[in-house]
Write a protein that binds this DNA or RNA. Structure first.
Lengths: 359, 359
DNA sequence: TTGTATGCGTTATCAT
DNA sequence: ATGATAACGCATACAA
């Protein structure tokens, strides 16, 4: 039961017109006699005609494809960015091709090459390293592309990044205001510049208050190592009064360890997490977190891409998207001098539930 | 600084051979003199040649594209399925085009049409309804496709689904064994067959034990409504001793409400969640959950797709992937007669941490 | 307003 | 083993 796919010629034949008329009608490029147009559309419908993109793209040179490359597709941060890009792309008739690099240089290069074979209109990349050596491939093709989330400050490419330094500085101030001095900053790895910035934000705020930088701990990139490293660190060091985690993934790992170790938040230790996903409010207590503006990141990336696709050739630009500290219940006030009582601190921040699209 | 993209002819010219030879060398289809092959590869490298998919596909008729359509890309369940499909596709040189339907019939149809214009080798769909009316489009094209997660039992298409009924029946047995009789089943919506099955699993296990079906609550599809409906229900009904949630999303919402309401798990109410993501272990206490085998679902979907792409024309098949009840700490034993003490119940289930790929 | 002719970049066929 | 040629399905320029 082979059902040969209808081509433009089949439609033309059935409608009793030429292929170019069908093309014009389907694309709405030229005015056609209403009656002819109807016949064409009727024939197309009857044959379930769907234009072949390969042919269309080959001929027109226009792709309407955005390719997205991220380290992995399971991290909710990257998944959210893709979701928002797809939503915007859909509105303007672009399709999204996704690929993951598994944080590997070679895979990243290979995948990028595969994505480029699509002749996409634009590319969005979250590189596995913030110097993005594979970016040269994109530069050489003079192709609109945006680097998201991980971009060295001297990277010569359009970039959209989170206000890492500010965000953690704010969080540090919050912890200091609540009387915390023994703070542990738990990071994934300092090989990533954005992670270094997040630590630096804390250190700088500490310095402003005349304090030495807090200790930091790198727990690596796999979930298993987090609990392990946390346990080892806590065995050798005095337990801090507060922990600041700098990725959603580390936040999960640290919480899992605390839970296993029978430590309660915020009774035994206060916590400020990173990123804001629904589960962080499902957590008991609801977590005080640094909310990255994922929509803002994706929106800006899309906006830049659109500009470049429209021919904008101005120098590379870098946009920094601010975060917001969501005050909830995982930080408790300790010590005598609380500069910012809970009621006040909560004031400016709306305790909205995160909106989740229907599914 | 326009950098014209190198075509196969450019490579051929530079290597001093014909386009056919370049094609043969690049695709490794015919044997070529090693020296010639090297010259071709060298030229290709020098020109950063990447074959144009459109042209290649148009001529060869082979696409190496899998398109995936899901209700939304933010739900971790769908995101995980896509991640695993991408991983497998990558290994065999397929690319993934993704799209979301926003759980809307019309968008689903439109997106499906857009995806089909790629002439994909295969399609994976999580339809917005389990009767999947838009599946006719795929049938008509005689295109390999697999329906995942939501598939009416009489759906005439390859389908991979979770063992919904079994899974919740097991969970119900667990709760009953721990002495719970007042159980509330919180669902998203009974419009979905898989959700109805999940409730039915509980009801049937109750019936086996001579008990009437437990109450159920539909909390809808947006995060806001969950807390609202939960609050309303609890205001009018006696608090159950245990809650069973049947999606990861509902689990989050219920936990968020319990946290807001100051109710502690499992002290005030026991909970069995659905799906198993890292945050469920980060939760305090670690949640007892029904783990859907996302990898299994994706692996089977891929396997079917491969078979169909290889020409298998046997009748549609439906595969049911079993779940696993992960016993952790959110269910407490109540009442006098505990049939299965914690130590025993924990025995067969390894308390492994979920492996998360590096990012 | 509609039709004819051409070519996009590649691969398949066939000839050498 | 390599090359010449044609054709995939469509959109465009131009002719009618």
């Amino acid at each position: 039961m082979r059902t040969a796919r209808a081509t433009i010629k089949d439609v033309a034949f059935r409608a009793g017109v030429s292929a170019s008329t069908v093309s014009n009608v389907m694309l709405g490029r030229k005015a056609a006699t209403p009656e002819v147009a109807d016949r064409v559309r009727e024939a197309a419908r009857a044959l379930s005609y769907i234009a072949d993109r390969s042919a269309s793209q080959l001929r027109s040179g226009k792709a309407r494809i955005i390719t997205v490359l991220v380290p992995n597709l399971t991290d909710p941060f990257f998944a959210s960015v893709i979701a928002e890009l797809e939503r915007r792309a859909q509105l303007e008739g672009f399709d999204i091709v996704v690929a993951s690099s598994n944080a590997d240089e070679d895979i990243e290069r290979t995948r990028l090459a595969a994505l480029l074979s699509w002749r996409p209109s634009g590319v969005v990349v979250v590189p596995h390293r913030d110097d993005f050596p594979n970016g040269a491939m994109l530069d050489a093709l003079n192709l609109p592309f945006v680097v998201v989330d991980r971009a060295a400050s001297d990277l010569s490419a359009d970039a959209v990044v989170t206000a890492n330094h500010e965000a953690t500085a704010d969080a540090a101030a919050h912890l200091l205001d609540y009387g915390h001095r023994d703070i542990l900053v738990v990071t994934s790895t300092f090989r990533l510049g954005n992670i270094r910035q997040r630590f630096q934000g804390v250190a700088d705020r500490f310095a402003e208050r005349g304090l030495p930088p807090p200790p930091s701990l790198q727990v690596g990139l796999t979930f298993e190592t987090v609990a392990e490293r946390m346990a080892a660190w806590l065995a050798e060091n005095k337990r801090p009064t507060a922990i600041l985690t700098v990725t959603n993934f580390v936040t999960m790992g640290v919480l899992a360890h605390l839970s296993q170790a029978g430590l309660s938040v915020p009774r035994d230790v206060s916590l400020v997490g990173f990123d804001d996903y629904p589960w962080m409010q499902a957590s008991s207590p609801a977590l005080t977190v640094i909310r990255q503006d994922v929509f803002g990141l994706a929106a800006e990336a899309w906006s830049i891409l659109r500009r470049r696709m429209d021919g904008d050739a101005s120098p590379p630009c870098r946009t920094t998207i601010p975060c917001r500290l969501m005050l909830r219940d995982s930080v408790r006030s300790i010590g005598p001098a609380v500069q910012a009582p809970i009621a006040t601190a909560r004031g400016p921040v709306k305790q909205v539930l995160i909106e989740v699209p229907p599914f």
